[in-house]
Structure formats: structure tokens, C-alpha cells
Design a protein around this nucleic acid. Structure first.
Lengths: 251, 251
DNA sequence: CAGTGGTCTAGACCACGCT
DNA sequence: GCGTGGTCTAGACCACTGG
């Protein structure tokens, strides 16, 4: 960069290149701010501006009382959304107690777990747009990996379709072909919509997200043979720990 | 929030609620920092911390000499990647000079444009993993909407497949069924991988991205009937202006 | 030119994690 | 208790935008 760029940019550039060159490997601790202050001969605030810049790029994390560290990336979980609810695939590869997400996590040598809460709610606007204004059942799943919060998955069903079924109970429901098949509703196609954004404050706290971690909001609507929406599943996938895959046939 | 939270959090909360309640609509200007300083009776740095927090959430943008404004969101462009290169679809809906991206942009009343540059390069690692180590042709497209940079799309082809074809020339190539069909190569399936991350500094500058704008990196690999990779297309989609759609048949 | 945000200083005290 | 980052102050000057 030119001479014209501010000092904290140059300090950030210096530290960034130390990181990408491997002189500061993931997990290693940066020199204390006081130390950097004298190394670069600037005030502490200027050091902090440089560090903030790298935190915003997702390269550093800092925590009060401990220090500032080069960020350690999660090993990503790969989810193939074109087969995740395939009936055919489930018949061939059904593992009791594991859906595809849990299997993908277990494949990386970690331990998946989920907490389920079920409630009857007035539908939020995007859900009402698909089902109409009637009450809906929300099955909220918070998914953990090695006991750390990892992702959120909310499923919405029209109340009249699921009342009195096992889906109303706050337990895991695993079944070949997915939860709807277990109550004799057949989805013949899905429509998935993906958007990418910064997390809300609530999501940051629920998922314990480090700074500069964007999320993908994945919304899947399942339809039956009469093009009636049976279910909407909204998944919040932190970008630092997921890869999303689709297999697409050409026609 | 409790009394324990820092002052700049409370100031941010106050401003955030003014924004979400509509008292500060998109595009409106915030009071100057000096003004907020006396309104909240804090130092200017504390005001700046609060503002930075909201910038990081994507709610505000500020520019030197002009002021700080409530961020105006783009009207998103919706891309359906399950039909974007469909031959069937192109035969029915072929518009000369428009691919699906350009059509999606035109649908929102804006004007699409792209700049194409072609070069022969050594393949970057993820590309080499799919094609092998031979030289590849990179067709880089920078796409604009109303003359503002909007997204990046790089296509990679093995050199031997495209040498001497129109794909080597730095012009738009539009054809029913896509560019490969135009040189008699037939892709029978695609594999798409999506990841979400913060943009690199280079992407921030190329795309003129506001702070707190994450990107989706979409990578599509096309295969022929012998499962040979014919092309890899890597697309960088800023999260504030795109919705990605997939239609998925159940099986 | 006046007014805005951007950069920078040199201090101070607080909150947290560790040992 | 010590060392870390987190919060906060009260200034200063610079760089850019717009009338």
C-alpha cells in the first residue's frame, strides 16, 4: 500500500502477512497490545484499530483477560441438500438415531446432539405467506457438536396436519424418508431459498458466534402432489463451519 | 439490557431501535457524531464505538465528509441454480444477449452488463484438484448492474477442450443450452458447492462492498456422461443483493 | 468555506482469566 | 496479584464533500 494509507492499515497488513505466511499459525497468541504499541511506536488505540480490522476479516479473535489469537477454523460439515431428505437414500443408508446432519458430523469424528422444543405459534410473515394465516406448529431444534451450539433448525407445520402426531412432542423423530413420511404425508418436491447475511444479536448469542461470522439462512418448503405446502424448514448455518452441496441434473 | 452493559452498547441499542421502529428510515442521515456526543453525554470515541457496532451489523454506512446513513438494501436478484443452465429452459425462454443472470436483473428494472477477460493460467489448487495439473483457460466475468460492480464469475476450462473455440475470445458468448453446448460438449450433471465467508480485501475493492457484507462463494463443476469434469465456474455473490434458489425433486 | 467522518494521541480505570 | 483485553475520556489535526 502507499504511504497515504493510515498507520493502522499498515499494522494490519503487517500482521495479516505474518498470519498468511504461517509465522503466526492458527491458535497462536498475538503479542499483547502494550507490546505491539511499542513495536510499532503508536498509541494503544491505533493498535486496537488494526486488530479490530483483522477481527472483522475473521482472522483474529480476542477475549478479555486471555489475549488475542489467530482464529482456528472449524472443520466444515458438508451437507448435501439434494439428498438430505431423499427417501431412496434413507432406505439404503438408514442409521437409527442419525439424520444426515448427525451423520455428517459423526464423519468428522465429533459428537452431534440436538435439543427439540415444540410450540404452537402465530406464523411469522414469511411462513404465513406459504401456509396462510392459521396457527402453525414450530419444532425448534438447536444442534450441538461436542456440546457447543452449532446451528439452528426450525420446522413449521400447519397445525391441522400434525395435531396429535409424534411431531407435537419435543423429542427427536427419526424415520426412513423423514418425519413427514412417518405421518403419511408425502412431499414430492422442495423449493430451497438461500440468503447470506450477518447474524442478528440473538443468533450471535444463541450460537456463540465469533465476530465476522456470517450465516446462511436456508429455507426449504416441501410440497405434496397437489402443490400444497406441507412444511417450511428454516436453517441458520454459520458460514465458518458448513459447506452446502447440491447435485443438479442437466435436462 | 442490564445496567452492566457498556454505554456504547446502550447507545447502539437506542439507535438500533430507532431504525427498526422506522424513526430512522433507510437512507436517512444520522445526527452528526458531535451532536450524538452531547445528546448522550459521552465522548466522541464512545459514539464512534456505538456507530461501528451498527455498521458491523449492516445497519449503517458512513462516509467521510458526508455523514452516517441508515443503510439502503438492494433489491435482491433471485437466481435459480437448478435451471440456470437448463437446455430445456433455454429453448423455451431464450433471449438473445441475455443469460439467466441478466434476465433476473432486467426483471428488477435495472440494467445488466458484463466485462469478460480471458487468460491461460496455471490452475489454482481447487481447480487443479478437479482437472489435473494441466493449464486451464480462465474466463473472468465482472458483472455490473446500472454500472456498479455487482458480482464476479470465473469459469475454468481445460485448455485442450476449448483451444481455438469462441470461448477463447474476450466477448460475451450466449447460446441456447449454454456456452459448452456451443462447442459440442454436453454436461449431463453439475455438482454445486456453496460456502459463506467474509470477503477478502481484494473482493471488497473489486465489488465496492460496504462493511459487513458477507459473500457466498458458489462453485459449480459440470460433468459429461463419462463423469469427466468439463468446467468449473466460481461465482462470488455478495449476500446483500442475491437470493439463491434450488428446486429439488423428492425421490 | 463550514461541516462531516477518519486518524491518532496519552492518558485512566474496569473486568476477566489465570496461577 | 498480575497481565490481558474492554471501556472511556478529552483533546488534536487531517481528508473529504458539498454548497
Amino acid at each position: 500500500m502507499q504511504d497515504g494509507s493510515p498507520r493502522y492499515h499498515k499494522i494490519a497488513d503487517d500482521l495479516r502477512s505474518r498470519i498468511t505466511k504461517g509465522a503466526l499459525p492458527p491458535g497462536s497468541q498475538l503479542p499483547a497490545e502494550i507490546e505491539l504499541q511499542s513495536q510499532f511506536d503508536v498509541s494503544r488505540n491505533t493498535v486496537r484499530l488494526a486488530i479490530k480490522r483483522l477481527i472483522d476479516e475473521g482472522l483474529l479473535v480476542s477475549s478479555q483477560g486471555r489475549g488475542t489469537f489467530v482464529r482456528v477454523r472449524y472443520e466444515p460439515v458438508t451437507l448435501n441438500w439434494s439428498t438430505i431428505e431423499s427417501r431412496a437414500r434413507h432406505e439404503e443408508a438408514y442409521v437409527p438415531g442419525h439424520d444426515q446432519w448427525a451423520s455428517a458430523v459423526a464423519d468428522t469424528g465429533r459428537t452431534p446432539r440436538q435439543e427439540v422444543t415444540v410450540s404452537i405459534v402465530a406464523p411469522p410473515a414469511p411462513i404465513a405467506a406459504k401456509f396462510g394465516a392459521g396457527s402453525v406448529v414450530r419444532r425448534r431444534r438447536k444442534r450441538f457438536v461436542d456440546d457447543e451450539p452449532f446451528m439452528l433448525a426450525d420446522s413449521y407445520f400447519p397445525l391441522n396436519l400434525v395435531q396429535g402426531t409424534p411431531l407435537m412432542e419435543p423429542h427427536d423423530v427419526f424415520a426412513p424418508g423423514g418425519v413427514l413420511a412417518s405421518i403419511d404425508l408425502v412431499q414430492v418436491r422442495y423449493c430451497d431459498e438461500l440468503t447470506t447475511r450477518m447474524p442478528t444479536r440473538v443468533e450471535v448469542e444463541e450460537l456463540n458466534l465469533p465476530a465476522a461470522t456470517p450465516v446462511t439462512e436456508h429455507s426449504r418448503t416441501g410440497f405434496d402432489a397437489h402443490d400444497r405446502a406441507l412444511r417450511v424448514m428454516v436453517t441458520i448455518l454459520p458460514g465458518d463451519r458448513h459447506v452446502i452441496v447440491y447435485d443438479v441434473p442437466a435436462d
